[in-house]
Amino acid sequence: MARWGMAADLDRCNGCGGCVVACHAENNISTVGPEQASRGRAKHWIRVERYWEGDFPDVKLKFRPTMCQQCGNAPCEPVCPTYASHHTEDGLNAQVYNRCIGTRYCANACPYNARFFDFFNPSWEKPLQLQLNPDVSLREVGVMEKCTFCVQRIRGTQTTAKTEGREIRDGEIQPACVQACSTRALVFGDLEDRESEVSRLSRSPRGSKLLEDVGTRPAVTYLARLTEEA
């Protein structure tokens, strides 16, 4: 059984935000508009966090693409009363929109604030609905949504590989953000496969997990932006 994981090389990432829009496009994430955005309702399954360090003129900025870390030990899972947030066999934190009743408990428990709530029924002003991806279900008011590691792509590739009677090749599955990333900062694959690029990168001495000490065992590894040649 695979364990899907991602590596984000912060030495490559330039903060462009391509992944953010790619994720909106792939996953039918609705825009909420300026009024709701100002009330904290924008939904960005992946966000490029940026942090300032130092003061002018010795100032630096750090970018960190942050999405659901698909925790191995996900705090969002045990708290969900309906199993809408649950663990799949291949280590994903699955979110079953249909089963979610909107307690928002999972989002409180998520240390990464990776979960976004549908405060209103998502809508698209015609004909923007034509852009919707038929592989991804639409959410309704009152449910929680978040990065799925583009599970529709994972399952699609699994099915293709199965019908073709072969294993999935490393790099064959590309979540939308990974595919979009111009700098190739994001790499996706099977962590169980020691040969895969993501597993190699995850073992890099530059690698670390976000909020590792909270005990969530994330599937995302961040490779530090070291200036020394490492």
Partner: peptide, 30 residues
Amino acid sequence: KKLEGAPAHPVNRGGLCARGHAAIQVTYHP
């Protein structure tokens, strides 16, 4: 349905910027 970077295109080599992704909304703009 969706715009993706053409992997074989020598300019962008599969990548696409935020604007490129949103270009589909030009077509479907209300």
